[in-house]
Design a protein around this nucleic acid. Structure first.
Lengths: 218, 218
DNA sequence: GGCGTGATGTAATAACCGTTCACATGGAGT
DNA sequence: ACTCCATGTGAACGGTTATTACATCACGCC
C-alpha cells in the first residue's frame, strides 16, 4: 500500500499506534477516528482534539492534513458517497437479470447502506455540509445519484413513448423516497419512531406502488 | 399576554431589551434568539452564550429556564412541530372540498413550511435530537403526523375493501416522499442541488403517480 | 555518504463555549 | 413590612477550535 512506504521503519507494527516523531499515516488515522467517533458518540462527538488523541498526536497535528474540522467530516462524507455509489452499482448490475427486480435491489441497497454504515450515512446526510464549500463532495454525491438516474432511464425506456415520464424526475422521486425513509425510519438508533413493518418493506411497497402508477409492472 | 404581567413595570418598552435585574421574559427571548441564530449562522451557531448575549443576560442565566443547550433546541423543535401541525391541518381542511386536491394541498403545505420556516424545520429534522430524551417533542411530532394519517385514512376509505392498502402505510409513504424532497431539495439554501423543476411540482407529481398506483385518481 | 529542505508534528497560547456554584436581587404573597 | 424563592450574576473549570513559532525527520540532490 501507498502509505506503508511512508511509515517509519520503527512504526510498522500495524497496530496504528505511533512510534516515532512522525505518525506516518495520520490522515487515514484521523478519518478512521472520525468514523469511530460518529459511531460511538454521534456527530457532535467528532472532535479534532479527540481524533488527534486517538491517533496519538497533538491537537495541532490534524491541521497539517485538514484545514478545519468541517473538512475532515467532508472527506468522510465524500468517501461515504464513493462507497455508496459502489454499493448501488453492485445492486443495479446494469439491470440484470431483470430491470424491475434490479431496481428494487437498488432500493434495498440504499437502506442497507444507511444501516450497515451509519457513520458514513451520518456524515453524508446529517452533518449539514455545504456542497458549495466542498466541490469534491458534490461530485461524489452526483456519482451516486447517477446510478439511480441510469436505472431510471432503463426502466422508463421500456415504456411507450407517449406519456413517458422524464427519467430524471423518476430518479429524483425514488431518491426522495429512499432518503425520506432512511432519514425518518432507518437511522442507526432504530429510527425516530416505531414502525409496523421494516423500513425495507416500507420502501419496497412504496416503490412498487409508484412504479405501478407509472405503468411499470413487476 | 401572559408574560406581560410578569415583566417589570420599568421594562415595558417592548423592544425586548432588558431594563432591570430580571429580564421578565427570558425564556421566550432565548427561544427567539435561537431561531434567529439558526437562521443566520446555522445549527452550530446556536450557542447558549450567544443567545444569552442577545437577550442581554449573563451566560449562566439560560440555565434557569433550560437544563442544557439541547433542551433549548428541543423546545424550538417542539414549537416547530406545533406550527407544522397547524399548517398541515389548515391545508387539509378535513378533506374539503375534495380529498385528493386537499391531499395535494397538504403536500404543498409541507414544503411551504420547510421553505417559510427554515429555522424551525432545521431544529425539527436536522438537530439530531433524540425523541427518547424529549418526550414532548415526540408527542408534538406525532400530532403533526396524525394529520397525514387522517388524510390517508380518508383517501383509502374511498377504495374498495379488497386490496385496500393500510392507511398507516400510505401515510408513512407520503411522509417519506415529502420529507425526502424537503431534505434534499427544499432546504433554505435552495437545496443541496439544482432541480429541473420546483420542489413543489416534483412532490406533486410524485404523489400523483403514487396515488395512481393505488388506484386513487385525481 | 553528507546535506539541506519541505513535510509533518509539538508546545504554547488566545478566544470561545457548556456547565456549575455560591451569591445577589427583587417581585409576590402573607 | 417582611420573608421567600424564582431569577440573574460573576467566577471558575474543563474542553474545543485555531494560530504561531519551533522541532524533527524522510527524501532527493550532490
Amino acid at each position: 500500500m501507498e502509505w506503508d512506504r511512508r511509515r517509519r521503519k520503527s512504526d510498522d507494527s500495524g497496530d496504528g499506534t505511533r512510534r516515532g516523531y512522525h505518525h506516518g499515516n495520520l490522515r487515514e488515522a484521523l478519518i478512521g477516528a472520525a468514523l469511530d467517533l460518529i459511531a460511538s458518540k454521534g456527530l457532535s462527538g467528532v472532535t479534532f482534539a479527540e481524533a488527534a488523541r486517538a491517533a496519538g498526536v497533538s491537537a495541532a497535528a490534524p491541521y497539517r492534513h485538514f484545514p478545519d474540522r468541517e473538512s475532515l467530516l467532508a472527506e468522510v462524507a465524500r468517501r461515504g458517497f464513493e462507497h455508496f455509489a459502489e454499493r448501488l452499482e453492485a445492486a443495479w448490475q446494469d439491470g440484470r437479470p431483470e430491470p424491475v427486480a434490479a431496481f428494487n435491489a437498488v432500493g434495498r441497497a440504499y437502506l442497507a447502506f444507511a444501516r450497515a454504515e451509519p457513520a458514513y450515512y451520518t456524515a453524508m446526510f446529517e452533518a449539514g455540509l455545504s456542497l458549495d464549500d466542498h466541490a469534491d463532495l458534490r461530485a461524489a454525491g452526483d456519482r451516486a445519484f447517477a446510478v439511480l438516474r441510469g436505472a431510471a432511464e432503463r426502466l422508463v425506456g421500456d415504456l411507450p413513448r407517449e406519456g413517458r415520464p422524464p427519467a430524471l424526475m423518476m430518479a429524483l422521486h425514488v431518491w426522495s423516497m429512499s432518503h425520506g425513509i432512511a432519514a425518518l425510519f432507518a437511522r442507526a438508533d432504530g429510527g425516530r419512531r416505531r414502525l409496523p413493518m421494516s423500513a425495507e418493506d416500507l420502501l419496497e411497497a412504496e416503490v412498487l406502488i409508484y412504479l405501478r402508477g407509472l405503468g411499470i409492472a413487476a
